[in-house]
């Protein structure tokens, strides 16, 4: 079963992501509402998630900084950015993101990206 870690400061999005992934048989193993929390939780996660879904603009620590720190903890982690801010694209890839999606995206597109990332493995 594919596992996923959702990092986004929007509570509503957490709810819909969770419903959707559950429906599609993807296991949401952790959620974080800001960057600092994400790093903290990620450090303790065992096993690591197959995929991280990362927002960019969040309180305390943005998605790019968070990605850098998570990549330091586990260079193999696969991080998909899902942001409403397209300007962060280059920074995100530089920090180690594997894909970058602009909000809003359709589920089909999100699922396809996840499976591409996993196939790539």
């Amino acid at each position: 079963m594919v596992s996923i870690f959702i990092v986004d400061d929007d509570e509503n999005l957490h709810r819909v992501y969770r419903s959707f992934f559950t429906m599609k048989g993807i296991d949401v193993i952790a959620s974080a509402f800001d960057g600092s929390e994400a790093v903290k939780i990620f450090g303790k996660l065992n096993p690591r998630p197959d995929i991280l879904l990362m927002d960019y603009r969040m309180p305390n620590k943005d998605g790019v900084s968070t990605t850098k720190e998570i990549k330091q903890i586990d260079p193999a982690s696969k991080i998909i950015f899902l942001s409403a801010d397209e300007t962060a694209r280059d920074q995100a890839f530089k920090a180690g993101a594997i894909s970058f999606l602009i909000k809003p995206v359709r589920f089909a597109h999100l699922l396809q990206t996840i499976s591409e990332v996993l196939d790539h493995q």
Binding site: D9, Y56, R57, M58, P59, K61, D62, V64, S65
Partner: peptide, 8 residues
């Protein structure tokens, strides 16, 4: 701007 913080 673009500090990476939104919402608030």
């Amino acid at each position: 701007r673009r500090t990476g913080v939104k919402g608030s």
